[in-house]
Every structure is written in C-alpha cells, then in structure tokens.
Design a protein around this nucleic acid. Structure first.
Lengths: 343, 343
DNA sequence: GTTTAGCACTCTCGTAGTGAGAGTGCTAAT
DNA sequence: ATTAGCACTCTCACTACGAGAGTGCTAAAC
C-alpha cells in the first residue's frame, strides 16, 4: 500500500499534533492548524484509510486519531525532516562538558544532558572494552596487602582494580611480572578477553611453584575480571516519564518502571541494536519486549578514536519528538566521542 | 501531657495497624484485633483525646484515625520494641556482600540491599574523606600525557584521579616529586583538605622556575581536587515509592520525586543529622524540608576502623515499619563498616 | 467514677442517570 | 473528486442517591 502525498501530509500533521498535545487528533484541528487546504470531510476520509492500513487508530469510535507504531515508523523513515540543534544549545552542551575532566563524571554528565535536553530518560552505556587491545599493565602495591592493577588499552581507556592478596607482596617480583607481561604485549596483540588465559599459560612457565601456590594465580584470575564495570549503565531523568499522560494507566507505568529498575534490560536492548547505522530508532512493540511496548528508544553509538565502543540512548514514550531526539542523540554522541578520544 | 498506659497501647495499635493497611484505623478494628479488652466506645474516647493532643488525626469527621508526625515520634521514642533480623536474612545479606570485592560495587550492593529488604529507597553516602590523613601518594604515567595519581588515606581508602598534562612527562622528576611528598607525609599529619596548600608551598621551594611554569603547579592543583567523588550518593529502589497509596496524590508524589531526582538534597539532609547517635530517625515535617514532609528517613552511620565516615539511609513514607527499618539500617551499616575496614 | 450500649449523625464512595460537546461516518449535492 | 450537512456515537463532567463505615454523645450499667 503506497500512501499518496495527501495521506503523507495528514499523517505528518497527526504525528506532529499528537506529539505536542498527547490527545487524539481530530480532522477539524488538522484543517484549522495545518495548511493542507482540505475540508474536514476529506481529511476524515483519508484518516479513515490511514486507519484501515494501520497507520492510525482511534481510542474509540468518534474520537480523534493517534499514530500507531507503524505510523510512527513510516513518519520516521519517510516523512520527518532532520532537525538541528540551535547554536546556543550546542554551546551550552560544550560548556557543561568542559567542566568535566574525568571519565566517570563525563558519563554521568552525558546522561544528565540527555535527560535535561529531551525531558526523557537519558541512558549511557559505558564503553565495551573486552575487545580492546591491552597496551600496558601496571601493578602498584598499596598498603600492605593490596595491589592496584592498571590496564591501559588501545582506546586509551584505563581499567583499575584493587586486588587483595593474602601473602606478602614482593615488589621486585611484581616488577618482574609486569615487565614480563608488558614485553609480551608488545610482541603480540592481546585483548582483554584473552589476556587472562594467555598470561596464565605464559606465566606458568616462568613462575616458581612456590609463587604459583602462593597468590599469583588467584591474583591474576581476579585481576582481569572486569565484568562489573563493563555492564555499567548511567541513567538520568527517571522521573520525567512518570508525569506523562500516557503513563497514567497503572500497567503501562509498571512496564516502564521495571525497565528503569532493571537497568540491564535496557542496556541489553540497546546492545542488541548496535551496528550498521550509527543512530537507531526503536518504536514501541518493534523491540518485542513487553516492557518497552509503550516506549521508543533513540540510540546513537559513540566512538573512541574511530572505533565504536558504546552507545547513548534516549528513552521516552512513543509519542516523542523524533527529529529533535535524533539530533540531540547524534550531537551528544559526537561530542562524547571527541571527549573520550582526547582522554 | 502524659499519656496513660491505655492511650499508649491504643497509639501503638493505631500505628501498627496503619503501617500495614495504609487506611484510617477505626475503634472497632482495634477492639477486634488488638486484645486491649476495651469497648469501641472507650477506645473512641481515648482516640478523641489522642487527637486533641495531636498524636492522631482524621482525614474527615467520621473516619478512622491516622498517626501524626508527633504520634510516630512518640511511638519511635517510647513505644516501639527493637526488632531483630532473622538469622536467615542475616546470612543472605552476608552472602550477597561476599560476592563483591570492590569498593564501588560494595556501595552499590549496599543500596540495593537496603531497598530490597525494606521495599523503600536505599541511600548510601560515600565515605567523606577530606579529613582523612594522607598516608601515601603515587604518580603513575599512563600513555604519553596522562598521570594517574593515587592517594591512600589512613582509613585505607584509595582515591584515584587521572590528570592530563600538556608538557612532557619526566619520570625521574615525577619519582622525585612523589618521594619528596611521601617523606613530608611521614613527618607531618596532612589531611586531604590541607594537602594542596601545604604541598604547593613546600614544592615552591624545591622546584625550578622552569617546572613551575610548565605543568607542575596546575597539575597539583587538579591533583587534589576530589570534590566530585565525595558527594557521591548511591540510590536504589526509586520506583518502590511510586506504587504506594500515599503517593497517589500528585503533589505528594512530586515532592518525593524531586527528592529522588536531586540526590544532593537527600545527601545533605542525611549529612545534617550526622553525629551523636549512630542511628537516627527523621519523621515527616521534622526535617523542615518541604520535599520530605511526607517521608521518613532512617539513617545509620558506618565506620572505617572505628572512625565514622559516612552513612546509609532508608527513605520511605512516614508510614513505615520503624523497628524493622532500624534493625536493617543498623545491621547493614555494621556489615558495611566491617567490609570497608577490611579493604 | 468508669465503662459501655445504643443511636443519631456525618462523611465517603460507588453507581446510575443525564446532557453537553466533540468528533465521526455517511449521504447527497456541488 | 470534494465537501456541506446531519445523524449518530462516545466521553466526560455533574448530580443525585443510598449503602456503609465510623464517629460523638448520652444515658444506663458496672
């Protein structure tokens, strides 16, 4: 079913109107506010067809129309006009970013920016680093029985981890260990996932039975287990959602609440859609997730030195200003890429 | 106004009943469920007096009674019986804690535990460290133009910060710098707040004009600015609150929402009440904060090696199971103290 | 003097009814 | 192909009403 020009105009008008008012859109409103030069009767007829083909729906007979997921999808793919942030907004974003010099804070600020600018929920996935190549590793004894392990990867990210050891720390031995590992790393490309296996194997050859028995083995095993920090999700603006009229109904609210509480669901959804295009829009039931059936998600990947490592997202009702969401997501992810690449 | 034994019993009954049902408590219910051996008429009379003295109130004439803030306060101070966690619950808590070996994760887990166990909002304030004495400082060059600064304090906490420098990094000079500072630290007790001023002063004497001009000065200034990590608040279970009947009314909900969104308000409130007793209960309007007028907050301080450094909190409606909240708060803060002291 | 039974009174809440208003679908005229 | 006109539908706000929950008061009982 091809939509004719007039239907496209009407669909666009319904989407735009519904996005701003959150109320079913009547034919009269469209005739009045959008200069389509059509009578209400004609508009009604076209709306009838748009409903028949599942682009619109009515909460009840004799009410105005609301876009369906399919309607939004068509709008997003074919009708919407790319929007751009105002220069003033861009400046403000840059200013806010300039205040932060640390990784953690940058991530947090990003999620705050997203939620403040969009009035929706801002999501930031921490960079995925297990494919990063390990460039350098250091062991620093702190206190009497702890070792701070620092790994620098090729994207310039730094992973830190404190490991408690039971035995005495021998500084020379620790130095020898890190020198050995670092020299191996120069010879061979090792990513974080392989680091553990590879090193333990290699080290088995050179460390004494005594040490193996002592703590080095266990130490190394813990050392490279960065799982926790990888799944990290930064969320902000959780409460923006609650006030929206679409979440007045308790079950709809509950769905989105569980989405917010279980950060992993959200993170995994974003991850599932990574790849191909930089910016993606997932509308309502398209995600197949019941928790997301009343929501849309706009995601945009960010890069470090050209390598895609993570994504940001905007979560809100399906009734969202898509052009603006996309422009914000893209601008923020670009800025974040720049900042992280500089780190 | 002294409450007689019977009034105390009735107040206790009203509090207990209202905590479980969230509905105004009638004289009939008390006569029926709580073995006070009094007729409804007598109970009504005592309730009338309790209302007169502001321990109870009625949403409207001819409805049951609800405790006032003053009523809860009297209950908390004079009537409630200390409760204890079941051994099974204690074990579960310990098990969950055992999974975590890292500081950040421990903090997060603590807030999760609090919210899961109480069905309210769990709050954890990160340790305040600016009064900690600096025991050791290390500078580690990572990459070509970044220095990782690590400070170990007397409570065993480790602060890390990455600082970008514009000039070349001279490893020997950096070593000299850290040796110099560390030797100073042995001679003199320096806390984090003083570190900056003291060192810059001392260093001015020994570093060359060239270096001063280059990056060391700026570097050091940034180095010891740990403000960000100090204000850190860990929150969990934000959504528990929303489903509660007391927050059906929009304005009440809005108050608590702003409390959850602006983590600082909450953190500052908890900080304001620190000191004196370990565990504190702040009920409704007692806090003088309009955002908290419908909430109660149970806080408990935690210690590192005996030194009080931070606090955890449970935020919920004034209608909360105070004995249980207190027992949970105290148990969790004790466990957290143990764990952090071991770090 | 204290406690309680009895009863009138008050207030809420759910249900039903109603009419205005918004918006549609259909038909006949343009 | 488009539109004016109109009957029809559904929602929503408002009102009325009766049942039910719970109180306060008074007079009687202990």
């Amino acid at each position: 079913m091809e939509l004719n020009e007039r239907m496209k105009n009407i669909l666009t008008a319904v989407v735009h109107r519904y996005i701003t008012t959150a109320e079913p859109v009547s034919s009269a409103i469209i005739a009045e506010k959008y200069n389509l030069d059509l009578s209400t009767a004609t508009i009604r007829h076209e709306m009838y067809l748009l409903e028949k083909y599942d682009y619109l729906w009515q909460p009840h007979t004799s009410s105005g129309r609301i876009p369906t997921d399919k309607g939004y999808r068509f709008y997003v793919d074919n009708l919407m006009i790319k929007s751009h942030l105002r220069e003033k907004e861009k400046k403000e974003i840059i200013q806010i970013y300039n205040k932060s010099k640390e990784f953690e804070e940058t991530m947090k600020i990003t999620s705050q920016l997203l939620s403040k600018l969009t009035n929706n929920i801002g999501v930031v996935l921490a960079p995925v680093i297990y494919n990063d190549l390990v460039k350098n590793i250091q062991f620093i004894p702190v206190g009497s029985n702890r070792i701070l392990t620092i790994i620098v990867t090729d994207t310039g990210l730094i992973c830190q981890k404190i490991i408690k050891v039971s035995g005495e720390i021998n500084k020379d031995r620790l130095n020898y260990l890190s020198n050995f590992i670092n020299s191996k790393l120069v010879e061979e490309d090792v990513n974080l996932t392989n680091l553990n296996n590879l090193l333990i194997e290699e080290l088995d050859k050179i460390i004494s039975f005594q040490e193996r028995f002592n703590y080095i083995h266990k130490f190394l095993e813990e050392c490279f287990d960065f799982e926790y920090s990888e799944n990290k999700v930064y969320l902000d603006g959780r409460m923006n959602i609650i006030k929206l009229p679409e979440f007045k109904e308790t079950d709809k609210l509950n769905y989105i609440l569980s989405l917010i509480e279980e950060e992993n669901i959200l993170a995994n959804t974003i991850r599932r859609y990574l790849g191909l295009r930089k910016t993606k829009i997932i509308i309502g039931k398209e995600s197949k997730l019941k928790e997301m059936q009343n929501c849309s998600l706009v995601t945009s990947e960010y890069r470090i030195k050209g390598k895609s490592v993570g994504a940001i997202g905007i979560l809100g009702p399906t009734r969202m200003d898509y052009p603006r969401m996309v422009s914000i997501a893209e601008y923020i992810s670009d800025k974040l890429s720049e900042i992280l690449s500089e780190f």
